[in-house]
Design a protein around this nucleic acid. Structure first.
Lengths: 230, 230
DNA sequence: ACAAAAGTGTTAATCTTACACCCATGT
DNA sequence: ACATGGGTGTAAGATTAACACTTTTGT
């Protein structure tokens, strides 16, 4: 069967990380090619014999070396025929979260230079990548309210205040600390540990952890996670 | 720029309709080609010079002639490399809703035979179309609870009982008619008309309509539609 | 008069919101 | 002793859930 179609398929990943009380995105700077020296999302063309999922993971590994904690398909961008001026490219965007302790980047590969940018300090991006990023940010914000994915942005053991801040900052809302804590704890999926975090000042704070197994069990029983900040 | 990639891009549409108190899906039977005589989702290859959105709309028009009321991108299927045994095809699936008064099909084109199937009487489908359909059904169910898309499956003016049934049947849940009506009416986006529907038996029922403009206005004001059936 | 579906209110229980002070540590 | 962030309870208000009878029509 011969189909006369000359469109290429790429995947791109929007990788979010949370550090220093700010949301970050992982970008790479191309060293060669048309968009040389421009910043862009992690991504590239899909190979004939790999799945889309394999393609994103390969690009993530090759270009940045980060181990993502959460990965899901976001949206497929193909309505702007000239989004890549060289040829028609449809890109399948993925949404990834990285544990803040893993914000360590691979030593410079020969192709790219990878760097974390704070979400409010994004440089000019290649192609339509800025709108893909916008889309991902919205998804992150809404998903945070109905799925416990915030934990994928935190270390395995975290301070309650880190969780609070994560919600405040990403959702750009204020929080009632008491009500927030009550709500989270009421689900029984976050557990206190015996350990304490090391904070410079103030009363020492306990470390907490997310019990994913418990969450998965609850899910089977029609459980609904939901956090709404006023 | 030459990229060595030989993957083709298709679009498929899962078109839902609601009639006779049952959810229906629109399928076509191929008259030619490898999957001759098999039932499949509406869809086809994307042309080089059309957007994805144009491609779905074109296929819908060409193969069925239905005018859809709601259309959104669902998911991109490309993780099964051999989903089409002839060549590698990645398909971008769209999710469509049709007003039940428009369940009229185009007179048989020369390529296909289109037909509505009740959701619990789906024949064997080509490729992986059955799993695409499953995915669409889940999306419909969840979206029904947080966006007023049920109205896109009903005629402009409808009986309250039709809305009730739509929710019961699609969500496969029971309903408390009083609480349901109170909830819907509390949002102020459904209005009573002066007209009455024609029912064979029982007390005559008023016709209602969805005020989309009002809904859009509310949206700007952080309004959240939410219907949860116990 | 009966069958069939439409229409309608109240109460108890639950969940959400608003709100402010004491605690444990380091300097 | 003070600065800093951690930790906690209660009461009013809003929302949800449970529940059954009357109305209007056609036959």
């Amino acid at each position: 069967m011969v189909i006369n179609q000359n469109i290429k398929i790429a995947v791109d990943a929007i990788v979010f990380g949370f550090a220093n009380n700010a949301l970050h995105v992982l970008l790479i700077k191309q060293k060669y090619g048309l968009i040389k020296n421009q910043w862009a999302l992690v991504g590239g063309f899909v190979k004939d014999d790999e799945t889309l999922y394999q393609a994103v993971n390969r690009e993530l590994e090759e270009e940045t070396g980060v181990k993502v904690n959460y990965l899901e398909q976001l949206y497929t961008f193909g309505d702007d025929i000239h989004r890549d001026p060289r040829l028609r490219v449809v890109t399948i965007a993925y949404f990834a979260l990285v544990n803040s302790t893993k914000l360590v980047l691979k030593a410079d590969t020969d192709a790219e230079d990878a760097k974390w940018f704070q979400i409010d300090q994004i440089p000019k991006l290649a192609f339509d990548h800025i709108s893909i990023l916008e889309c991902a940010k919205k998804r992150l914000q809404s998903k945070l309210t109905y799925q416990p994915i915030g934990f994928d942005l935190l270390p395995k053991e975290f301070l309650f205040s880190e969780l609070e801040n994560l919600y405040c900052i990403i959702l750009e809302k204020d929080i009632d600390r008491r009500n927030f804590r009550k709500k989270i704890m009421s689900y029984g999926i976050v557990e206190e540990t015996e350990k304490y975090g090391s904070n410079k000042n103030g009363r020492p704070a306990k470390l907490f952890k997310f019990n994913k197994m418990k969450y998965n069990k609850l899910l089977k029983d029609d459980f609904q996670f939901y956090i709404n900040l006023a």
